[in-house]
Design a protein around this nucleic acid. Structure first.
Lengths: 196, 196
DNA sequence: AGGCCAAACGGACCGCGGTCCGCTTCTATT
DNA sequence: AATAGAAGCGGACCGCGGTCCGTTTGGCCT
């Protein structure tokens, strides 16, 4: 009688060929994104580049958004690690206010450079929510550490919202604002919110 | 020799059948949106409902986003009129601060009810920019009237950003916040920003 | 009225995201 | 090593957004 003695390994185990294909697909996707733009990458192309059938791509990643989210997840995870445990001023060691400002600057840059990929990843399931959630949690923590009074979750959202890709693209692309100005504006916003 | 004596009528004139078809298409789209959801409306269905060919739909509205933007435009225009010239507290007659708060509440409600349509309209050309631009202009004007010091365009963006559909859907759908709380949070944000 | 031609029309056609189902392959068990 | 069956695989297939081009129509000029 098989008792499934995998410890707390929740997922029902992944077959070796499946794992190999997942890696191949992620690598293929990354390669194609680098070669053409994000928008130019088709699912058929990814499947072909990885040397698998199209069905396999969708089995692994659900949808195009899911695949993009998985690709995005790599750099995102790395960035999250830097925010939690990296060197100051982003990581611990600096004053909370300083960390918050560094966090915003970093996120702003990241959202501009990865904008296309973030858009392509869309709102695909838990992955994208995790990304949003991480930032929200971190900003909430920093606001609390600073000693801000009020509805912290909402204030955190208010600070993160102007850094959303849609907003930034509007400002940079359509209104021709330069990044320094946007950054300065965000710093100003933070100061006003914190001052209460 | 035809001198084209249309005054400042910039558009090169629209043929009567074209005008008829445009109206028919908008009406058909509206009808289908009411019947099914926005997401369930296909371009073929709109064409068929209006009794025209598919090519005609794309000739008139460029893309699905364009068509949705045109449908959205009707209610949006009406709302803009209310903001500029309607009764207080939204329209003129109330104090600027009161108007700003009313503006935010109204926009929040509107973005939630028309969320699907706004998303479907996407960033389709000048139409959507006009909508964004109107709100931005109005908020800038009110901030100036209140006497706020600083980079007004950026502050206006910072206030509008948390009212974006993406943000609101995240809060309401995923985080289960209720609307009163979000509204109160926005009021608080405005107060902090205005207080400087 | 008649005729000219730019503008508008319609629907066949294409590429892409996504699904489905019959076939193959891996792994656990004896 | 043999085997059973679950998990994975692949590619034909579908619907939708969007394009293209041969045909029709409406407006103007004689």
């Amino acid at each position: 009688m098989p008792i499934e003695l995998r410890l707390a390994d929740q997922q029902p185990l992944e077959r070796s060929d499946a794992a190999r294909n997942r890696e191949a697909l992620l690598a293929a996707a990354q390669r194609l994104i680098d070669r053409c733009s994000v928008e130019g990458v088709t699912m058929d192309a990814v499947a072909h580049e990885a040397g698998v059938g199209k069905g396999t791509v969708f089995r692994r990643f659900e949808s195009r958004e899911g695949l993009m989210a998985a690709v995005l997840n790599r750099s995102e995870t790395e960035w999250q690690a830097a925010a939690i445990g990296g060197p100051p001023p982003l990581g611990p060691g600096a004053e909370p206010m300083e960390r918050l400002l560094a966090f915003g600057h970093s996120r702003l840059r990241l959202n501009l450079t990865h904008g296309a990929l973030i858009n392509a990843a869309g709102h695909a399931g838990a992955r994208s929510y995790a990304a949003v959630s991480f930032s929200a949690m971190h900003v909430r923590y920093l606001l609390t550490a600073i000693g801000v009074q009020g509805d912290i979750p909402l204030l955190a959202t208010a600070l993160m919202a102007p850094l959303e890709v849609v907003i930034l693209e509007q400002q940079v692309r359509t209104e021709q604002m330069d990044i320094e100005r946007i950054q300065a504006g965000w710093d100003d916003l933070v100061r006003r919110v914190v001052a209460g």
